[in-house]
Amino acid sequence: MERDYLILTNNPLVVRCLEKWYDIAYEDVGYRDVLVKARDLVYLGHTLYTHPLSGSVKPNETPYKSVVVSKVPHTFSPEQAEIMSNAVMAFDKFTPRNRVLTDKLREDFQLIDYTLLCGGIDFDAVAGLSMLQQP
């Protein structure tokens, strides 16, 4: 059966590791923008497959977020719509920080978001990384 997953993300590592296998809507936007995009699709009836606040890295620490929704609308779910609107509200209560992120730190945050996503879609995160390292 064809996978019904559409990965919404602003994490370049997700694209590099998963683009061969999954439909990915990548945009170079902020964490909140990814949440809003997911929320709007869920409002339109797309199924939410992974929790928008996955990981205990707080929304104002990591710039990266990936959320999986269905490729096409199915049946509107009020529970899932509530999860999404709560996630946006949860994001807004964290105090913004104007932190300078080093490349190493960006890599760590990308890795965390990627591994959490893999846990959600049952993809072998380590295998994905190993394939990346091959020439």
């Binding site: 996955s54 990981g55 205990s56 965390i112 591994t115 959490l116 996503l117 893999c118 846990g119 959600g120 995160a125 380590v126």
Partner: peptide
């Protein structure tokens, strides 16, 4: 039990709780 993915795991008798 915390079980969200790599680096976010808990183990029960050595089994990943996820």
């Amino acid at each position: 039990l915390q079980s969200q993915g790599l680096l976010h795991d808990t183990y029960v008798y050595g089994v990943d709780a996820k």
